[in-house]
Design a protein around this nucleic acid. Sequence first.
DNA 1: TCAATAATAGTAATTATTATTATAAAGAAG
DNA 2: CTTCTTTATAATAATAATTACTATTATTGA
Lengths: 127, 127
Amino acid sequence: MTTMTKYSKQREAIKEYLSQTKEHPTADTVYTNIRAILPNISLGTVYRNLNLLAEQGEILKINCQDGSVHFDGKLDRHYHFICNDCGKICDIEMESIDFINKIASANFGGKIDGHTVHFYGKCPECK
Amino acid sequence: MTTMTKYSKQREAIKEYLSQTKEHPTADTVYTNIRAILPNISLGTVYRNLNLLAEQGEILKINCQDGSVHFDGKLDRHYHFICNDCGKICDIEMESIDFINKIASANFGGKIDGHTVHFYGKCPECK
DNA sequence: TCAATAATAGTAATTATTATTATAAAGAAG
DNA sequence: CTTCTTTATAATAATAATTACTATTATTGA
């Protein structure tokens, strides 16, 4: 029996917050911001729901090069840039580069289903 | 005054171990394996040297999608594949795709210096 | 309205990693 | 070869991020 997901205002608030922000907050930043609306929410609830939403594909979990974890409520196809100076994550709107999967498949015995790519450098502000 | 790096057999053993293995071990796996040669090495020493070697560009630090951190002693240009089933990291020998930096630069205000890319799917064994 | 189940807050526990410190090893100078 | 200075080490403590636990509360379907 597959377990059933019930509504909760906490999860709804997290989803809403992520969908409206342009930032790519960490779990802790989500927690801080959600507490403005739901002062009694617990950090564990934030973590559980972020992971649940990410599993369900409703948000995106971003594992940065430096080991930090960020979340993204924007669902349309886009890429991420991380600034080497200020550490900020920016969106990059660009054409799909899914064709690199084909390039990688050429000399590889397994099956390539996808990839993750992050770009690095100086963001518009730090440049 | 820039601090000077002194030789240590611990660091040498870590470097040697990474250069000869085809695996992409975690810090803890490095620790376990090095203890076969140096039974008294401490985990802190392993972490410190892995980070030092990575900073100096003598080894590679790989931050996986799932948050785990692995190390690679292979220095020539190659790409990484992570199996969705068994979690193993494999090398992919393929032509450079550095040109994706140009594609990303097209509509971006900042400066793109590099990228990281990991491929996902089923490895040769799991397929 | 009621029963079943999932979600929560609060807290404790875990994991990975870094910091601290007294001792040991490395390298330079005499 | 001995001494001095500096870096590295082992062992341990501390930290940070995340997950697990548990009693209580909220949601949903009947």
